[in-house]
């Protein structure tokens, strides 16, 4: 986003100054004799370029992946989602969640200065305090697994949002499934 801001800003500054300045006065008439044009000189054309008619291959694309060690890189390298999902009123990890967390642990072990807050979330089908406790269980399940894969426990803090921070507003199975999650939210030490 940022790189587009500068030209736009420069443009608007120029546009503004053009608007603000008073119009140029027209050229003042001058009474002066015009010198005689010189006689033409014959011009020898430059030699014709050699033309190589072989085709030019398109450039090899620069790798466009996220910056290694960044939050985007983390998400990209761990399956495209920084959240793992739970069953209704469950806080045990599914096989799929464990697979994702293994990738997260690999990444965290590579970038060992990164710290994370593990956020536990619940769907709306539970009362407020029970869901806070349930979210805390989910966050702890994620943290414990990452620690078991070699991530230092002091790099991971946990918090539960219960049902206070849904990512999906729908009141249906799809929405609820998305809202029952543990979110590995990277904090400090990431590349930008």
């Amino acid at each position: 986003m940022k790189k587009y801001l500068l030209p736009a800003a420069v443009f608007s500054v120029l546009a503004l100054s053009a608007c603000a300045s008073t119009p140029d006065p027209g050229p003042e008439p001058v009474a002066e004799s015009v010198p005689q044009a010189p006689a033409p000189v014959p011009v020898v054309p430059a030699p014709a370029p050699e033309i190589d008619r072989s085709a030019i291959a398109p450039p090899v694309p620069q790798p466009r992946g996220p910056v290694p060690g960044s939050v985007d890189d983390f998400i990209h390298q761990t399956g495209g989602d920084a959240r793992v999902y739970f069953g209704y009123d469950r806080y045990d990890l599914t096989a799929q969640a464990a697979d994702t967390l293994r990738l997260q642990a690999d990444w965290l072990n590579t970038y060992s200065t990164v710290t994370a807050v593990i956020e536990g979330n619940a769907d709306e089908r539970g009362t407020r305090e029970y869901n806070l406790a349930l979210g805390a269980r989910r966050a702890a399940a994620v943290k414990d697994f990452l620690v078991s894969q070699g991530v230092a426990p002091n790099r991971l803090t946990t918090v539960s949002y219960g049902k206070e921070r849904p990512v999906d507003p729908r009141s249906n199975e799809d929405g609820w499934a998305r809202n029952r999650n543990g979110h590995t939210n990277l904090m400090t030490g990431t590349s930008s």
Partner: peptide, 9 residues
Amino acid sequence: LSFIRGGNS
């Protein structure tokens, strides 16, 4: 109050 430690309240 409930205190939560290591996921356990």
